[in-house]
Design a protein around this nucleic acid. Structure first.
Length: 303
RNA sequence: GGCGUUGUGGCCGAGUGGCUAGGCUGGGCUCUGCAAAAGCCCCUACAGCGGUUCGAAUCCGCUCGACGCCU
């Protein structure tokens, strides 16, 4: 082991695959903290529906970025990148190894690879663009992007309003094209990521998801959703498990249907997660039932 | 046994002589500050066999299956 080198073990995989349990084993073995990299586990109001580690697990191992935010806060990948890097700098003072676990691909990349720097722009710009979208549809926005940033116009998926609006808000807010900021050299990381993916056959993942949704309901997900119902417009609550229950609470669908929709949408989410992680060729995959000893051996072997 | 109704892709479901309805499930994919979000692509079926026709999922006949009623 090189004494002067830091390593970040990153555990990724589809939801409900068993990342939490593995990360706790690893954290005990390497005697280090865990950073969560899950874009919904930040929110303290959403404990049941995001399958946050149990209180036992949280007592045993120090976790960061779990339930440290409120759904009323504005939070995003950029801020997470800064917070996570800051935390890692602190952790690497004492230990040359840290663990990050999570299923949010973009957030993982932000920490391991870094995002380009974009100036913050006023949220009103986005609001305005969203209103325009609602009123006149996507086409005028596409045209506007063509004017302001032809490079992005040619590379962004033009049917995707989120992407168009993000590019536009940067163009408008900074008076420079969105593409101007992209693909700049990024700040060097002072650690080496070790990426570990956990996978299982589709059917096994799906069964685990179905079971976990049932167990969330038993733990009181509906009550949690009821408390949050009045805030359903908040971004943090645009989340599988809550949305569907809000629809039930609004009398749009039955509870049974809501539950089956939660399962379905979680399955689709899991599929997308795997699509994302499969792209990373530096990632080493392990079966979800693999003995953690083997994974530890793998980690030791590349340090 | 007779009579009637019916048979559309994994499921639901429209169509009715000639431009691959649509939805759901499922699968593949995209991804730089809303990411558990947002978006894109794919799965071309008409029970079987024969006939009519330039052309049939659509009309006719038979066979098979389903359902219903009657005896």
């Amino acid at each position: 082991m090189h004494q002067n080198k830091n390593y970040l073990i990153v555990i990724v995989g589809a939801t409900a695959i068993g990342k939490t349990a593995l990360s706790i084993k690893l954290s005990k073995h390497f005697n280090t903290d865990i950073l969560s990299c899950d874009s919904r586990q930040f929110y303290k109001e959403m404990a049941i529906g995001t399958a946050v580690p149990s209180s036992d697990e949280l007592i045993n191992v120090t976790h960061h970025f779990i339930q440290n935010r409120s759904i009323f806060d504005d939070y995003n990948v950029g801020q997470f990148e800064r917070d996570a890097i800051e935390k890692l700098d602190e952790l690497f003072q004492k230990n040359n190894i840290a663990i990050m676990v999570g299923g949010s691909g973009l957030y993982v990349n932000a920490v391991t690879k870094g995002l380009d720097y974009f100036p913050t722009v006023s949220p009103e710009i986005r609001e305005k663009l969203n209103q325009e979208l609602k009123k006149n549809g996507l086409e005028p926005l596409q045209e506007q992007l063509k004017e302001l940033d032809i490079e992005s116009y040619n590379s962004i998926e033009l049917e995707n309003p989120h992407r168009i609006i993000r590019a536009l808000e940067i163009c408008i807010g900074t008076e420079k094209p969105y593409s101007y900021y992209k693909n700049k050299p990024k700040r060097e990381r002072n650690f080496t990521p070790i990426l570990i993916g956990i996978d299982a056959e589709r059917e096994i993942i799906y069964n685990r998801i179905n079971q976990r949704v049932d167990s969330m309901m038993n733990k009181g997900l509906l009550e949690e959703a009821k408390k949050l119902h009045q805030h359903k417009k908040l971004n943090a609550l645009q989340t599988v498990g809550y949305r569907e229950l809000f629809q039930f609470l609004d009398d749009e669908i039955t509870l049974d249907f809501a539950i089956s929709e939660i399962k379905k949408n979680t399955r689709r989410f899991a599929k997308r997660q795997n699509t994302w992680f499969k792209k990373d060729k530096t990632l080493k995959w392990f079966d979800f039932e693999e003995d953690s000893g083997k994974i530890i051996n793998y980690i030791d072997s590349i340090q």
